[in-house]
Simulated scan of single mutants.
Amino acid sequence: MPEGTLELIVAAAQSAPTSSNLQAWSVIAVEDPARKARLAGLAAINRHIEQAPLLLVWLADLSRLRAIAEANGREGEGLDYQESFLLAVIDAALAAQNAVVAIDALGLGSCYIGAMRNHPQEVARELGLPPETVAVFGLTVGYPDLLAATDIKPRLPQAVVLHRERYRSEPDPDDLAAYNQRLRSFQQEQAMPVVDWTELVSNRIGSKAALKGRNHLGEVLKALGFKLK
């Protein structure tokens, strides 16, 4: 990619909101083909990780804060709690989405890789992560195929996701049925497998096996040094 592109993307990421200005995230830029191939194998064999010129791995990073606290004579006890881990994940997500906006503005394309959490310990070893640091997701960055006919994937109706004053107990079945039909039309236009959204959701959360190893994430995070009290 053009010189300075990576730095511009990261500058946009750093402009995102961050809780208490703790900036509890980091990002690793991976361009080496061999390393991308190894990471692709750990992330459900996502071939576009290998094909894209750049892979950004976004980290929830408490290690930097721990080191700063200890350098100032404090234990950093506040980092031992689930709140701090959640804060770091949110910070990373906000930063990454800012990066995506910049990527789009540059005429590039991107895709989030949640499968980076399938084998978090192996990913940590590959990237040389210190304790209390974990890859939250990856983000491939590259050039869209301008000849490919694409469109914006439909989202749920606002009536399903927007609640006023208090949470409604259940979505209207008619709204879900309408969305299923709309998504099916999109899938047909894009030559994708045609399946109802409600079925996709049921399959994705229907069993422990569907989590593809992420059901062990709690114990893995503790092995990576997070206290999670």
Rank of each mutant, 00 (worst) to 15 (best):
Y81N: 11
G218A: 15
L55F: 06
A177Q: 14
D145W: 07
G225C: 08
R184M: 15
V57K: 01
A29P: 09
E165N: 06
Q14E: 15
S185C: 09
K222G: 07
Q121Y: 04
E7T: 00
L139W: 00
T18S: 15
Y179C: 06
S63D: 13
A37Q: 14
V201W: 10
G218M: 12
K212C: 15
A24T: 11
V123M: 07
A124L: 04
W197A: 15
E126V: 00
R47F: 14
A13V: 05
Q82L: 14
E50A: 08
Q14M: 15
S63F: 05
L106P: 00
V57C: 04
L146M: 03
R155F: 04
R164K: 15
V30L: 07
M116F: 08
D172L: 06
Q187A: 08
N118P: 01
G114Y: 02
V136K: 06
P2C: 08
D91T: 01
D91A: 04
R184D: 15
A96G: 07
H119M: 01
G41E: 04
L55K: 04
A43Q: 01
L129T: 06
A124K: 05
L156Y: 12
L79T: 07
P131I: 04
E75N: 13
L54I: 03
Q23I: 03
I49T: 00
F85S: 03
L54Y: 01
Q23Y: 08
F186S: 11
L59D: 00
E31D: 02
G128T: 01
P157A: 06
R182T: 12
A12K: 05
D61T: 00
A149F: 13
D61H: 02
E189P: 14
V123H: 02
M1I: 12
K212S: 10
A29R: 09
V10R: 03
L62Y: 06
L79H: 03
E31Y: 04
E219H: 13
H163P: 00
Q187I: 03
R184G: 07
V220G: 00
R38F: 01
S185D: 14
